[in-house]
């Protein structure tokens, strides 16, 4: 199976089975899904519905037991560990619930980390960091350590880190779960703006009603399968 030009993520008969104390647990039970470039999609569902597992598989953090995953025209379900590592570095930005910034690096260093791995030169890194800091509203925070920032500010840094390397896809796992509602709204609106401006695809895994309201496509998972798939204008 191959993807069409505008398809960013294509999964076919995706299955993931875990062993829990020797008992096989099917977290994902045959998902066929296509997500196109530029989408602002939320994957929702109750706990244990397979959201995080699905997100891990389409980002190459986990491998499927069966089925195929294509991302940006590459079949990532058959890549080796180091190939996946390089692929994630160049194509995927991550936003985590707990921000997961490197505590010993400043805001600027956290943001430029992936660019350093990519071998982007110093001048270009600095230029991009300054630009992104303005975009996420953190001008003047470049030299601060994450511990000196509020939760909302840390998540903005995480967003900046995710988008600064200009990936094809941003995967956000419960990005607003640790934020108060006002901060969460501001962050989501900022990401929505960035999505419109840059065309980067956003896929959220969430329980948050605010995200569901803002998503243009809402995919509901239940027991490892797609229960509903709703696109809004």
């Amino acid at each position: 199976m191959e993807n069409k030009n505008n398809d960013l993520i294509v999964t076919h008969s995706l299955v993931k089975t875990y062993q829990d104390n020797g008992i096989p647990v099917k977290a994902v039970r045959g998902i066929d899904l296509t997500i196109q470039k530029g989408e602002f999609t939320a994957i929702v569902g109750p706990s244990g519905s397979g959201k995080t597992t699905f997100l891990n598989i389409i980002s190459g953090l986990d491998v499927p037991t069966d089925g195929e995953v294509w991302l940006a025209g590459k079949k990532i379900s058959e890549m080796s560990g180091s190939e996946l590592s390089d692929f994630r570095r160049d194509h995927i930005g991550f936003i985590f619930q707990a921000y997961n910034l490197i505590p010993v690096l400043t805001v600027e260093e956290n943001i430029e980390y992936i660019m350093l791995l990519q071998g982007v030169d110093k001048e270009e890194r600095h230029r991009r960091v300054q630009k992104i800091l303005t975009e996420v509203g953190l001008d003047g925070y470049a030299d601060r350590l994450p511990t000196k920032l509020s939760g909302g500010q840390q998540q903005r840094v995480a967003v900046a880190r995710a988008i600064v390397s200009q990936p094809s896809l941003i995967l956000a796992d419960e990005p607003t779960a640790n934020l108060d509602s006002q901060t969460g709204v501001e962050l989501l609106d900022m990401m929505r703006e960035l999505n419109k401006k840059s065309g980067i695809t956003y896929v959220f895994s969430t329980h948050d009603r605010m995200i569901m309201e803002r998503a243009r496509r809402l995919i509901t998972l239940k027991d490892g399968r797609i229960d509903s798939d709703e696109t809004r204008e």
């Binding site: 560990g81 590592s85 991550f94």
Partner: peptide, 16 residues
């Protein structure tokens, strides 16, 4: 562990 997991997720190679 979580920090190394993050570093691996965002593209840091095992050797790094």
């Amino acid at each position: 562990t979580r920090e190394y997991g993050t570093l691996r997720a965002i593209g840091t190679a095992p050797l790094q």
